[in-house]
Amino acid sequence: MADGHSFNSISLGGRGGTNPGQLKVHSGGIVWKKQGGGKAVEVDKSDLLGLTWMKVPRSNQLGVRTKDGLHYKFTGFRDQDVASLNTFFKSNFSTTPEEKQLSVSGKNWGEVDLNGNTLTFLVGNKQAFEISLADVAQTQLQGKNDVMLEFHVDDTTGANEKDSLMEISFHVPNSNTQFVGDESRP
């Protein structure tokens, strides 16, 4: 155990769905390798900005934020993995992951939080979904109150999902005080 933990069937989530792979947590950092080779993600302990846990349907998701502004999401951890990893993170990275909650209420109103490249839609302080602004091809202001985000259409990395997100728009009522003027264009 001194050298860390290894987990099979951990998926890396992204715009094109999820990719299955293997994740290793060792004293120097976190490594994920895609099943069958290809893509790999390596995060050195010194590049780590923060870790989060979130309960997702039938699984747990580990969020890994790096100092470069990247945010990886790994899914496939069992409840007992969370406990053992927390111990490991504490003794090796001297950090305790922050716990986040997923909103499943189905509401379409909430708050927008912008952090680095990530746009988070929150419903009652719980996360409903996240979008990486790096994938946004264009933003458009429609009328006075609507912000439209258009995503790059990329069929080559279409991964395993059948339906892929093309556009999403947000309505910011006049009564909203969070975003005024030009800031309403994330």
Partner: peptide
Amino acid sequence: TPGAPFAQNDPNLQKFPDSIYVKEVSFHSK
């Protein structure tokens, strides 16, 4: 969303003046 026609009377929409709404989502599919 609250700004849309006919939606003005929806109590659920008026309760949350400080909120931001997801208005439209489009997907392309194979």
